[in-house]
Design a protein around this nucleic acid. Structure first.
Lengths: 204, 204
DNA sequence: CATAGTAAGTGACACAATGTCATTAGTCAA
DNA sequence: TTGACTAATGACATTGTGTCACTTACTATG
């Protein structure tokens, strides 16, 4: 998390910082990003950067988390539209991200994040469904929307694991798309095959 | 891949290099590993390192691939023991890795690799099941051993996707165990819940 | 055997990045 | 005005990377 000095900053300065960091993290993956570039484009002295953030990673995960929250909102919406069918909602989310990532604008950020998939990144996505991290409220919000009749679960714990499975499969499909340069259509087809396998089960 | 000069090296020198690299990659995750340390413990001049490897990453993935091949052999064996049931074989592999990773010796290497899970790393694991990368032979070897009657697949393509799903779920469970410091028992329990969900399907 | 030609070895060097710290400036309350 | 706290600043020490000109070792051939 950024330090509190960062949040005390006047809005326009904070905005400049965010913009500069986004630009740098869109240019190259985290490991190659340089603080020097960020402070240069933001026009702040190097020392200031360390006044606001612990380090590169701190800034990176802060931005990523912000982006992820937008998608969480979408997911909840789509859960409603699909009458509580999580698998269908996940399919919608996948389509959305394919579309977003097609637009090249400033979303190289997410592309770079996906390519250099550290555990922490996947974790940020999964946190949404984990009571301990996500504010209790949004987990509840999701749980209420879910139609349990559609799911093959017998005990409460299984719900969390279903989300884990869905997240990691969705995630890997996205990464695949960008590391192998697959077309949107092919990526979607692969993803749907896997979702259907998950639905019906792998074993006879 | 290391350069050919590396493979031309006298065995003991090559061994020293490998050992030193393993030591460094066990000490810290890839991003923090330093070539300076590797050449120091191996007792070779810095310039030589670049004679043998492209860079840090090159050395790292070379070592990782070597380790992974051992596990591939185990997987094939366990597929035989389980009469071609891939899910059961995967469960055995998971148990093996829990056991291996319990022994602290030099396996911090794998731990560090898992914690810093780039796409490339998961890829190395998955390659085993991909005709394009794995030598055609070992994929065939695996395919022959698999008892398709146990699987719920209707068309040939689905087989590859089953392996994708299994790999990513297994993988994430391992990462979880080490990032959250879960006990072996709990990790195994979580994993088994997910495997059973996969078996019977997520939807009613 | 001499010699030319190729492959490998070497470490100083240029360059870039990181995180720190002593110093300076700003703000606000007493 | 003073004192006390918070923030800003950029020079600096340190560490790391990859390269290159030069040296050494090895091999084959006339």
């Amino acid at each position: 998390m950024p330090k509190k000095t960062f949040f005390n900053l006047p809005e326009n300065k904070r905005g400049k910082l965010i913009e500069a960091a986004e630009k740098e993290f869109s240019r190259v993956p985290l490991s190659q990003a340089s603080i020097a570039n960020i402070v240069k484009t933001a026009g702040v002295p190097r020392g200031s950067f360390y006044q606001y953030f612990e380090n590169k990673e701190d800034a990176f995960y802060y931005l990523l988390e912000a982006q992820t929250n937008k998608r969480k909102a979408f997911f909840i919406l789509s859960l409603q539209n699909n009458n509580g069918d999580i698998l269908a909602a996940m399919e919608d989310l996948f389509r959305l991200m394919l579309k977003e990532l097609g637009q090249e604008d400033n979303v190289n950020f997410l592309k770079n994040a996906l390519m250099n998939v550290t555990h922490e990144i996947e974790d940020i996505f999964t946190k949404i469904f984990d009571e301990k991290h996500s504010g209790r409220s949004s987990l509840m919000e999701i749980k209420c929307l879910i139609d349990r009749e559609k799911l093959n679960i017998s005990d409460e714990r299984e719900f969390f694991h279903i989300m884990q499975i869905l997240t990691s499969v969705t995630f890997r499909n996205l990464v695949d798309k960008y590391s192998r340069n697959i077309s949107d259509d092919e990526a979607l087809e692969n993803f749907m095959i896997e979702m259907n396998l998950l639905r019906k089960g792998l074993s006879k």
